[in-house]
Design a binder for these strands. Structure first.
Lengths: 190, 190
DNA sequence: CGAGGCCTTGACCGCGGTCAATGCCCGTGG
DNA sequence: CCACGGGCATTGACCGCGGTCAAGGCCTCG
């Protein structure tokens, strides 16, 4: 059934024939990480792209003091990968972690790229994926350069309430790039 | 000659036949903005993608107090556009401005996208363009979430010295997202 | 030559981080 | 089943980075 979810996701994103779709799906394998399990550590190269069937992943990096900064959170029916490393082939600065016990599909970087060469719809899919990733990252950049902590929190509440409701404060704070203490004070003020 | 620059840029980026290249180039027109001329204002939709032959463009947005935050600077042989608006078709939050008197080529959004459908190498080009834009934006995001003003300035000095040498402090500060006064103090300290 | 923009320097202050103490909730083992 | 321990959340005290405001000097361009 998780393959059905992925299948629907792909069809929503690009035009693709049934044959191509079946071919593409055949490269995905399942993985069921536990809560808090790391799927990619800093310094490794990002060799897999994940699709979340159930559960939730986060992408984050650590600053020089070892503090987390969460860059992306993927719930059901979303893709997640350490995209910079996936693009460049360089070792990753980003970690990937299952926040909840999850059921995932993944495709290796190698399979992903060879599909791009043989299935034009898959190249198109990659393009759409990059567009989404870019828009998302650019909007994050905008919020860090023009908004203070309170405004970022309010924006998160209105645009992505699930993150606030479903995840522990610790991770919400890391996603807003503020300390847990500050988030706690913000919440009590609003 | 500026078309030669663009031609070389495209060939460096993707594999493309001479016929395709000539076809693609035929859609580019020239533009010679003056210093400080605005090529795109907030609220307009980003309908052009620019290639810099000589001079220099910047992409920036304004926060609620009207302060600039510069997101991207394009010197010779670089592309620049308000990419989020270019992707989504929504009105832009970003401005495009010529910092120096410049000589540019541009292609309209419409031509750009119809080329993607008819010339596979152009789709590939777009893909590479998105990859670059993503990596660049992600690395900016990383520096804002993990580094303080001093570290960002030192990083800029080592990775992109031209920005610091060639542009007025006002713009360098806006690129680092710090006040002009803080940049001035940083410089005197280093 | 004058005016306006840019850079520098000083004084001040507020946002948000750190450290520490305390309370709460939950999973685990005796 | 309860007691304990560890992780998470809250609250207070403190402080430093970097922003704002203001004044003064310099350079450029009309």
């Amino acid at each position: 059934m998780i393959k059905d979810q992925l299948s629907a996701y792909i069809k929503r994103t690009v035009e693709i024939t049934d044959d191509e779709l079946i071919h593409v799906l055949s490269f995905f394998k399942t993985l069921k990480p536990q809560k808090n399990e790391l799927l990619l550590s800093e310094g490794q190269t990002s060799q897999r792209s994940f699709f979340v069937g159930t559960g939730c992943l986060r992408i984050y990096f650590k600053d020089e003091n070892g503090q987390d900064s969460t860059r992306y959170i993927a719930f059901e029916n979303m893709f997640a990968t350490a995209l910079v490393s996936f693009i460049t082939g360089q070792p990753s600065l980003e970690y990937i972690q299952a926040i909840e016990p999850s059921e995932l599909l993944y495709i290796t970087h190698e399979d992903f790229n060879s599909l791009r060469k043989t299935v034009p719809a898959w190249e198109k899919f990659y393009c759409k994926y990059l567009e989404k990733a870019y828009v998302n990252t650019a909007s994050r950049l905008l919020s860090f350069t023009t908004m203070d902590a309170t405004e970022r929190y309010k924006q998160l509440l209105s645009k992505n309430q699930t993150v606030v409701m479903r995840l522990p404060n610790k991770i919400v704070a890391s996603y807003l790039n503020i300390s847990q203490e500050t988030l706690s004070r913000l919440k009590s003020k609003i």
